[in-house]
Design a protein around this nucleic acid. Structure first.
Lengths: 224, 224
DNA sequence: ACTCGAATACTCTGAGTCGAGTAATCACGC
DNA sequence: GCGTGATTACTCGACTCAGAGTATTCGAGT
């Protein structure tokens, strides 16, 4: 059984546009951009062409014809295969029906924030909150501008989602900044005095409790 | 000027643990796991060793000694350099002080959901909501178990963050399922009738408005 | 006519990522 | 004293990804 690798959402987007009609890669990119899908799916040419290669190798799409206009580079037009059509719905059902753990950069920052002194962290969190505020406004303006242009709101739910997450992130960030400033979280006082006495070792040891070990068992073990 | 690549948070975690004391890579992994940092930072051996190589090449860490016990594999102990120490605080300030755009898998699913019929999407979203509910509970139980064990809550803020996002995600997912079911979003009726008449083309064309183009200018252009 | 930027259409390279694989040692029971 | 599974410690290679680079054509202005 050839294990399918569904890590790259760009491959799904390629299958989706090719389900409409055959296209060459550059046109796929243009189509995705015109629909604003490049806001939700990472898109750049290097990845696009190697993704198309991969899908071809796996038999989910197939080259239909190659054409050439004048002395321009050749264009290879691809179409989706029956296997490919099955894969789209199956993969999409997986994306919409389950939740996958992701690793946001900011979460890494929070896990390691003990390295910096608490007052510095508070100031940085406030900066971040302001940036998130702007981002939320930017998303809002895209949505209103696009719906004013006659696009049905159902084609913009991914923007609403993004905005819901940004707003939650903003609320958390502001709240954390306030709590740290007021030392309203257990351990902040020690952290503060540690840095004021010129400390170097940033984070405390944390023992693994039996409950935590049990709770972790359900996650797949990336480190065996 | 060698442009620093701060894409991989594991490199930051390596610099952070080595700021405490010199270690060999396997011990770094064990330390991170004991602190639960593997919940917030993607960790596997392949990446760890190549990350350590990369940091060595960039002069941010340096091999201190290599030792061997019996016929076991050699262990190379690394220490952080002055450049490395500067990089930790700088990078951490960037992570905590700004917000970076991420591309969650689910957002891609939402952008392409038009491929499936609306009733199918509603059912899938309900499944996802249930999964998110469980995940929220799992995170809560880890936090309570660990604090009961005597770890100060300030060392677990990254879990609180994760949970805030999961809860927001859950609320959005349930709300969307309800709205789609009641056709309470513009365009759902058309989507539904389109699929009921056995349609194939899934998503409508969307013109880019001048406002949207202007708003997008601030984002860096991945596709030039 | 001419130029200059934007759009068209890929290609190439180096770097990163991941998971499986290897191989020894230790801890424990029986 | 001997299997057996966990732990220690890394190695390997196939695959993926980002983004700069290349080469041509089109269109708007001067």
């Amino acid at each position: 059984m050839p294990r399918r690798q569904r890590s790259n959402p760009l491959a799904l987007a390629v299958l989706a546009v090719l389900s409409e009609r055959p296209m060459h890669p550059y046109e796929m990119a243009a189509t995705m951009r015109s629909r604003g899908h490049d806001e939700s799916i990472r898109l750049n040419y290097g990845s696009l062409y190697s993704t198309v290669d991969g899908l071809t190798r796996r038999g989910l799409i197939a080259p239909l014809e190659t054409e050439r206009e004048g002395r321009r580079p050749e264009r290879t037009v691809y179409e989706v295969t029956d296997d490919g059509r099955a894969e789209v719905t199956d993969w999409l059902a997986e994306l919409l029906g389950t939740s996958t753990k992701e690793y946001p950069q900011f979460e890494a920052g929070l896990a390691l924030m003990g390295v910096l002194p608490p007052d510095r962290v508070v100031a940085l969190l406030r900066e971040r909150a302001d940036a998130l505020d702007l981002e939320s406004l930017r998303l809002e303006s895209i949505v209103t501008a696009t719906t004013d242009n006659g696009v049905p709101p159902v084609f913009l739910v991914e923007m609403d989602y993004e905005r819901a997450l940004v707003d939650a992130d903003l609320a958390f960030t502001r709240r954390l900044a306030d709590d740290l400033e007021r030392s309203a979280i257990g351990g902040v006082a020690e952290w503060r005095s540690f840095h004021e006495s010129g400390g170097v070792v940033p984070v405390s040891e944390r023992e693994t409790s039996p409950e935590e070990a049990a709770a972790s068992e359900t996650a797949e073990g990336a480190v065996p």
